[in-house]
Measured scan of single mutants.
Amino acid sequence: SSQSQGISSSSTSTMPNSSQSSHSSSGTLSSLETVSTQELYSIPEDQEPEDQEPEEPTPAPWARLWALQDGFANLECVNDNYWFGRDKSCEYCFDEPLLKRTDKYRTYSKKHFRIFREVGPKNSYIAYIEDHSGNGTFVNTELVGKGKRRPLNNNSEIALSLSRNKVFVFFDLTVDDQSVYPKALRDEYIMSKTLGSGACGEVKLAFERKTCKKVAIKIISKRKFAIGSAREADPALNVETEIEILKKLNHPCIIKIKNFFDAEDYYIVLELMEGGELFDKVVGNKRLKEATCKLYFYQMLLAVQYLHENGIIHRDLKPENVLLSSQEEDCLIKITDFGHSKILGETSLMRTLCGTPTYLAPEVLVSVGTAGYNRAVDCWSLGVILFICLSGYPPFSEHRTQVSLKDQITSGKYNFIPEVWAEVSEKALDLVKKLLVVDPKARFTTEEALRHPWLQDEDMKRKFQDLLSEENESTALPQVLAQPSTSRKRPREGEAEGAETTKRPAVCAAVL
Rank of each mutant, 00 (worst) to 15 (best):
L246R: 03
L246H: 05
K247S: 04
K248L: 07
N250P: 12
H251A: 07
I254F: 10
I255C: 14
I257P: 01
N259S: 08
F260E: 12
D265E: 09
D265F: 04
L272G: 12
M273I: 09
M273S: 09
G275H: 08
G276Q: 11
L278P: 03
F279K: 02
K281R: 06
K281V: 08
V282E: 03
N285R: 04
N285A: 08
R287W: 15
L288V: 06
K289R: 08
T292Q: 12
L295S: 07
F297V: 10
F297W: 14
F297R: 04
Y298V: 13
Y298C: 13
M300C: 12
L301M: 01
Q305P: 01
Y306T: 10
E309T: 11
E309F: 08
P319S: 10
N321Q: 03
V322E: 00
S325Y: 14
S325H: 03
S325E: 07
C331W: 07
L332G: 14
I333E: 02
I333T: 08
G339E: 04
S341N: 00
K342W: 03
L344H: 01
L353Y: 10
C354K: 02
C354G: 04
G355F: 01
P357S: 15
P357Y: 12
Y359I: 05
A361R: 02
A361P: 06
E363K: 02
E363F: 01
L365H: 11
L365R: 01
L365S: 10
V366P: 15
V368A: 08
V368P: 03
A371P: 09
Y373C: 03
R375W: 12
A376K: 04
A376F: 08
V377Q: 02
L382V: 08
G383H: 05
L386V: 04
I388P: 15
G392V: 00
Y393A: 00
L405C: 06
K406T: 09
D407N: 12
K413M: 00
I417V: 06
V420D: 03
A422R: 14
L431S: 03
K433C: 11
K434V: 03
V437F: 07
A442R: 03
F444W: 12
T445S: 12
E447K: 06
H452Y: 06
Q456H: 12
E458I: 12
E458S: 10
R462W: 12
K463P: 09
S469A: 14
N472T: 14
P478H: 06
V480A: 08
L481G: 03
L481N: 08
L481T: 11
Q483A: 11
Q483T: 05
K489L: 06
P491T: 08
P491H: 14
A496E: 09
E497K: 08
T502K: 03
T502P: 00
P505A: 14
V507R: 10
C508D: 11
